[in-house]
Design a protein around this nucleic acid. Sequence first.
RNA 1: GACCCCAUUGUGUAGUGGUUAGCACACCACCCUUUCAAGGUGGUAGCACGGGUUCGAAUCCCGUUGGGGUCGCCA
Length: 440
Amino acid sequence: MRVRFAPSPTGYLHVGGARTALFNWLYARHTGGTFLLRIEDTDAVRNTPEAVRVIFDGLQWLGLDWDEGPLPGGGARGDRGPYFQSERRAIYDRALRFLLDHDQAYESDGAIRFRMPRKKIIVDDLICGEVCFDCTLEQDFVIQRKDGSPVFHLVNVVDDLEMKISHVIRGEDHLSNTPKHLAIAAALGADAPRYAHIPLILNRSGSKMSKRDIGASLSEYQDGGYLPQAVRNYLCLLGWSLRENREIFSIEEATARFELDQIHRSNARFDADKLLWMNGAYLRSLDVDEILPHAQRWLESAGFPVEKWESAYIKEVVLLIKEKVKTGKELAEWAQPFFREEISFQPDAVKRFLTAAGIQALRELLADLSEASDFTAAALEERFQKLARTHGTSVRTYVHPARVATTGREVGPSLYGTLTILGKDRVLRRIRRAIESFAS
RNA sequence: GACCCCAUUGUGUAGUGGUUAGCACACCACCCUUUCAAGGUGGUAGCACGGGUUCGAAUCCCGUUGGGGUCGCCA
């Protein structure tokens, strides 16, 4: 089996494209076949090195490695290259010459048109089944522009043939183009690959997700603190499932179970809420060591110089917070009090908890914690409860002002864990400072 | 408009002739609780419609309606 992902470098990687790449990759890995990457950069205007970089980054981030194709560092792997269409002109010229010589194409106003056969063409699709197109009234179409550049329909088919692609797994928006592609392959005297058209990903309002839609670009997830495992898992679910009331699964499991004929025929709407939930689920369940490299990136982009801190310290913070948040972005926000001495106080939090009563509670707490020799979470919890009992009040009396004093916020991870990680010195200093700043 | 694809709660799906139509997200309620999450329990909500076929249709056939896609010298 030889499958390919053939994106056009547009400057961003569409989630639909990412899902197409994923399905191709899954099929290749499932069958022990070859997954190749081909860059369809025939549109010179849009073709920039940065735009190609985005494709490499996105695929690598998702963990979709390709066996053949251009390499991010330059050069290529595989013996069916070049893998940039812009470098394959001679091959297309040869195909054009062949079609012209065999009267399957002709010149028209300077362009070259393909002689579309006027007959019924059946697409035997691996997912959609046999689809019949009546092409008796079909028009001939351009395969080489007046400026001499070849057109998508031609190059796409020629490359699939030249690269010995056995299965073309692509979006269903291409189903209607397939008769053309079948006809070109036949005119070239070749056997066309098998086709498998996967359902489209729709936006919230139900039309094909486009560049303009929120959440359409993979980079939004790369930059938004999502875990690639979660995004990949979610993408699997758009048109495919394990069929056993379970939606969170490993990539190995997906690879083992993936079958083309189990893919849906109906389009799927992209549900950002569910992806968010899934990302949180991954954050909670993944081992902190797996999250660490991502967390370092999240913290870095939030403006915290991670190299300043021991990775053991970062791990403690991540371990504390990851249970409570859904994205890395959120995690970085919550982590602020651990990486910045100058904490910023949220006005609402101050107003609500650093009242006269709150300050009084902080004074009592300060006196108590000053005596503490054991600053573990369990010991602190005991201390807070004892303090509350002594003063005949609820532990909340101390917890809330303490959280605001040490983190500046009224919402955050477990307070006792927070205090433990901050350590006695920082905790006492922050409580003192809060008392000084907000006692009126 | 022509052609093509599709149709199970709001969303993603399980279901392939006989089920109290299952699961997940979202939503609501309660429980747990130091906040927020998470977790637990329960709940609201679905086979688009009309004809067939059949002893029996979410499941098979036809039509209607609805949604989507394609009709470029873009890819």
